[in-house]
């Protein structure tokens, strides 16, 4: 977090609860000093995460915003146990992410949904339902339900190889809904969705939030208007660090001003 943020930007407590609410409630996700460096083939090093510190309480809806390459997808990969940080400590429900995922699973919507080309949409979802622990009649019931929710009923028999980006995104959303999860990681969830399905996604998101007060929804997005509408807290990330962290008030213009101001401050440093 940049020093003296309050003197430059609107106060974090502006019009709402103080930020301390996030650290006084039961902590669900905690990252301290988390760093991750990628090494390219030409030996160039890229610091995707550079000593990131963050605490997220159970039941929060948090948006991560920042420029391309800021480290948002790497952060989600770390939380999903798909990427191991080089340094630092990450705890999800008090345990390492891999242990948490292997015991309870997390809902993950990657920034680019990739599916097995030769399988149909239904078969893909059936396999994921099996891995989620569904068995017997529960498998077709769950799959039919999420196909219906994602509007994919008439595409269930299509092979994934022929699906457009938007349809793949909807398959990605469908697989999130197969089983209830306490932690959902949505990386650019609106990417590729048409206006109708953006609206539908907002409804689903609100539904997920209402279903369980303990459910934590983390999303990354470049769309600040949607972010202001969907989440209660915004974390601005740049160059693998948290540079601002504040509650949203549903005002997309104020949010945009603050995010841009924070990014400008980071660039000027």
């Amino acid at each position: 977090m940049r020093p003296g943020a309050e003197s430059v930007l609107p106060k974090p407590t502006d019009g709402g609860q103080p930020l301390d609410q996030y650290v006084t409630r039961k902590r669900l996700i905690e990252l301290s000093g988390v760093s991750k460096t990628y090494r390219r083939r030409n030996r160039q090093r890229i610091n995707a995460l550079a000593g990131l510190d963050l605490r997220i309480a159970a039941g929060s809806t948090v948006a991560f915003v920042g420029p391309n390459g800021a480290g948002k997808s790497t952060l989600f990969g770390v939380l999903a146990g798909l990427i191991r940080p080089d340094r630092g400590r990450t705890l999800v429900h008090g345990v390492a992410p891999v242990a948490y995922v292997c015991s309870r699973g997390v809902g993950m919507l990657p920034d680019r949904v990739r599916l097995p080309d030769r399988l149909t949409v239904r078969e893909t979802l059936v396999r994921l339902a099996i891995l989620d622990g569904c068995s017997g009649d529960a498998i077709p019931r769950s799959v039919d339900r999420v196909l219906d929710l994602a509007g994919l009923g008439d595409r269930a028999g299509d092979r994934c190889v022929g699906l457009s980006h938007g349809l793949r995104q909807r398959v990605g959303i469908a697989q999130l809904l197969l089983r209830p999860r306490e932690v959902l990681l949505l990386d650019e969830p609106l990417s590729g969705l048409d206006p109708v399905w953006r609206a539908r996604f907002r409804e689903l998101f609100e539904q997920l939030r209402r279903e369980s007060s303990g459910r934590t929804l983390l999303l990354s997005s470049h769309e600040l208007g949607e972010t202001a509408r969907l989440t209660e807290r915004v974390v601005v990330i740049d160059a693998g660090r948290v540079i601002d962290d504040f509650p949203t008030r549903g005002d997309s213009e104020a949010l945009e001003r603050r995010v841009l101001s924070a990014l400008q401050w980071a660039r000027d440093r």
């Binding site: 999903a80 292997c102 699973g105 949904v113 599916l115 994921l128 891995l131 622990g133």
Partner: peptide
Amino acid sequence: RSGSGPLLLTRPISR
């Protein structure tokens, strides 16, 4: 290759 790791490996299974 299939790119389906993020969907498969975030399920509650032993990797």
